[in-house]
Every structure is written in structure tokens, then in C-alpha cells.
């Protein structure tokens, strides 16, 4: 019901107060009821701990730096381009890629919850989900960037994308100077997760 209640009106308050015990109790009940398979939980965890993470996004960025036609298609309509690479799925159904330039820096936030492009970057880092980032990224993005060690030139505008719908944004950072001789694999190592959220620059880990 869409009204505020005291804590005791919510069923969750019947669970143990310690969060670890809460999760354990809920998993136990759901497993006993046949609603959850613990092996499926292990599989989900393994997926986001080991298989789907920011190296996916880094591959996209490195390819865009090397292949102008790929980059143009990616910026025009990202979904088919990403699907060709196998990067589609939960929390990445509607992707838009936004390009940083000398005069425009893009940053992504979700002020209302924690929307994030999972197939390309994995699950969001703790700071992305923090109250501080959600509250401040829209009002004082440059102060937030400074906390990541990033200072933009005065001629560079900031565009903060607040992910209020099911569209997910990936920042295409600028290719670092002096990397002309590097191939895609070497370039991938220069693409940090934070640079694809817009809280870092490529080449600066």
C-alpha cells in the first residue's frame, strides 16, 4: 500500500534484525517452500562476480576508438551493435552510448534508485548506490568529479544523465593521447569502469 507505516506494520520486521540473518532466514523459508533453488542463487552470484563486468564495456569502448564505422553505429543506435557482441540482457535492454569530447563531459547517475547498465558494467559499485552520489551528482557534478581526481577544463560542459526510465547509459570516454600504436586489447586496459560512468578518464586508473 502506498502509505507510510511504522516499521512494525511491515512484514519484513518479523525477520531477525541482523541483515545477514534476515537473508539467511528468508532463503531458508523460500527453499523449504520450493520457491528458490540455492544452486540457482550460486549461479546468479557467479554470473555477476566472475562473468559479467566492466571488461565488457571496455571492449566496446576500445573497439569504438579503433573502428570509426563501429563507433558511428554505436552512437546512432547502440542496441543492435551491442547485441551483435552478445551484450544484452537484464538491465541493459535499452542502451544509449554518449560520447565525451573536449567540450562535453557525460556522467551517469540514478537519483531515485540505482539503475545501471549491467550487461556492460556488471553490478554497480558501492559508491554509485550511495546516498552521497545519488544526491550530489546532479547538483554538484564537478565537486563529485574532484573526489575521483578529475578536474575538467573551464570550456567543458557537464551533462549528467539521471537514469529515470529503463534506458541505460554508457559513457564513451575520450581516447588518451599517445595511444595511436595500441591495439584493441591493449586499449581495453586503459578503460576503467569509472570512466564509463563518467566519473573517471580513460588511461587514468
Amino acid at each position: 500500500m502506498p502509505h507510510d507505516h511504522s516499521d512494525h506494520d511491515h512484514p519484513h520486521s518479523l525477520l531477525p534484525p541482523d541483515p545477514a540473518l534476515r537473508v539467511k532466514a528468508l532463503e531458508t523459508i523460500l527453499t523449504q517452500k520450493g520457491l528458490v533453488d540455492p544452486a540457482a542463487l550460486d549461479e546468479i552470484i557467479d554470473t555477476y562476480e566472475n562473468r559479467i563486468g566492466p571488461r565488457n564495456g571496455a571492449k566496446v569502448v576500445a573497439r569504438a576508438w579503433c573502428d570509426p564505422a563501429f563507433k558511428a553505429a554505436l552512437l546512432e543506435d547502440a542496441d543492435p551493435v551491442l547485441a551483435d557482441l552478445g551484450f544484452y540482457g537484464r538491465q541493459g535492454e535499452h542502451m544509449v552510448v554518449v560520447e565525451n569530447t573536449d567540450t562535453l563531459h557525460n556522467m551517469v547517475v540514478c537519483t531515485l534508485c540505482s539503475c545501471y547498465p549491467w550487461p556492460l558494467l556488471g553490478i554497480p559499485p558501492g559508491w554509485y548506490k550511495s546516498d552521497a552520489y545519488r544526491a550530489r551528482a546532479v547538483r554538484e557534478p564537478r565537486k563529485v568529479l574532484a573526489e575521483f581526481g578529475v578536474t575538467l577544463p573551464d570550456g567543458c560542459a557537464v551533462r549528467v544523465w539521471d537514469s529515470t526510465a529503463e534506458v541505460r547509459y554508457l559513457v564513451l570516454p575520450q581516447r588518451p593521447a599517445g595511444t595511436e600504436g595500441l591495439d584493441e586489447t591493449a586499449l581495453m586496459d586503459l578503460v576503467s569502469r569509472d570512466s564509463m560512468i563518467g566519473c573517471g578518464l580513460a588511461g587514468a586508473q
Binding site: 545477514a20 542463487l41 566492466p54
Partner: peptide, 26 residues
């Protein structure tokens, strides 16, 4: 402040991934 963290930090407690997986499974 916003506190950056390394890319390899996925969760901050053992029950976090369990909570995530339980929510997705349900």
C-alpha cells in the same frame, strides 16, 4: 563525500550477493 573504490570490489559482506540473488530469483 563520494568514496571511490577499486573495480574488483563487488560486494562488502557475504550476505550481499545472497540478497541480490534471492531478489532476482524471486
Amino acid at each position: 563525500p563520494v568514496v571511490p573504490e577499486p573495480e574488483d570490489v563487488k560486494f562488502h559482506a557475504d550476505w550481499h550477493p545472497r540478497a541480490l540473488a534471492l531478489t532476482l530469483a524471486c
